[in-house]
């Protein structure tokens, strides 16, 4: 070694009041301690955090601002849908009017008579379908998550099961519905199994791709810091998988509901699908359309009121103010 600068190192003093903190020594002074920063530097100010909210609609005229509100846009879409329905009612006698459908469903809800032996029934079929759906998802989503995590973390499991899972994913919900009907007949097990089998591949594949999309640099960091296995699983693995996992779960909710309806349509003696089939067979199109609309409404409400809110909450970290094409183009 060659000395370049012969100036001796600074002695402990005002510039260096700390010296070495030996292993096992008491914890360093806390931030409120005024001596904490007496290390020869002036205390550096805490930087102010700017306003992180997006600029919003400033610059648009009042009517354009109103038209850009999400609930207004949705209201317009709903009005268009009703107008198209009304037009089809006038153009074809095979399409029941809005009024007929609402009236029919009201009779179902109140348990009134549809004429002859037919009486309204609503809460029983709806409750049963929701129960089957909940049980199916409660089994299918965790099972798919475990399979997905195994596929993502183990190359051996991936080699063993990845292709099979992809094949299962490619099968349409209707196939699962028919298979479940064949295997379990007119029982409540068939719709539950159909929901489970539909949900598993969607959740598994998305969890798996989520695990594999985690930045290897973060894994290197975890290795360098010898991060505990628990923290790696909870914070890195599950946290990093969450965006894909949400996609998988949303798909499981939608396709599971579809397969439930199909199984109930073909091989059930109760439930939403069975009720829709009943009115279809009885040529009561208002009842058929009413139950199908209820089916669509429920899955839409579930998506809007539960899944999207959860998603928004879970992905706060990714919500940066961004400029969309529409804003860029002044739309």
């Amino acid at each position: 070694m060659t000395d370049v600068a012969q100036r001796p190192p600074a002695p402990p003093g005002p510039n260096d009041p700390y010296g070495q903190v030996p292993r096992g020594a008491p914890a360093p002074p806390r931030p409120n301690d005024p001596t904490t920063f007496a290390s020869g530097f002036q205390e550096l100010p805490t930087l102010p955090v700017g306003d992180l909210r997006p600029a919003g609609d400033a610059g648009y005229s009042a009517p354009r601002r109103a038209l850009r509100r999400p609930w207004v846009v949705q209201l317009i879409a709903f009005a268009i849908l009703l107008a198209v329905w009304q037009y089809l009612t006038v153009a074809s006698d095979r399409v029941p009017s809005i009024e007929k459908v609402v009236s029919f469903m009201w009779t179902e809800v109140t348990g009134g008579s549809h004429g002859g032996m037919l009486v309204g029934e609503f809460w029983g079929p709806l409750g049963l379908s929701l129960q089957r759906y909940a049980i199916g998802l409660a089994i299918g989503i965790p099972a798919g998550a475990v399979l997905g995590l195994a596929l993502g973390t183990s190359s051996w499991v991936r080699g063993l099961l990845n292709d099979t899972t992809l094949v299962l994913l490619a099968l349409p919900a209707v196939v699962w519905a028919f298979l479940a009907s064949l295997w379990f007949g007119l029982t409540s097990t068939a719709p539950i199994v159909a929901v489970v089998l539909t949900a598993i591949p969607f959740v598994a594949i998305n969890f798996s791709s989520g695990v594999r999309s985690i930045d290897p640099a973060l894994m290197e960091m975890s290795k360098a810091y010898q991060v505990s296995r628990r923290n790696q699983v909870v914070d890195l693995l599950l946290g990093g998988t969450l965006p894909n996992a949400f996609t998988g779960v949303r798909l499981a909710f939608t396709t599971g509901w579809n397969s439930l309806l199909i199984v109930e349509w073909f091989s059930a003696t109760a439930g939403v699908g069975w009720r829709a089939r009943l009115w279809y067979d009885a040529l009561r199109y208002a009842g058929f359309v009413g139950w199908i609309l209820l089916f669509v409404l429920l899955i839409t409400l579930l998506d809007r009121l539960v899944l999207r809110r959860l998603e928004r909450h879970a992905f706060q970290w990714n919500q940066k103010p961004t400029l969309s094409f529409a804003e860029d183009w002044g739309m």
Binding site: A217, M221, Y225, V227, N231, L236, G239, W317
Partner: peptide, 23 residues
């Protein structure tokens, strides 16, 4: 070992405090 990388290598889905607590 404590390692400061070229890039910060923070978990994007965790807050600053939780990134600290991760290790």
């Amino acid at each position: 070992v404590g390692y400061v990388f070229q890039e910060p290598r923070l978990l994007p889905w965790r807050t600053v405090l939780n990134n600290m607590l991760y290790v």
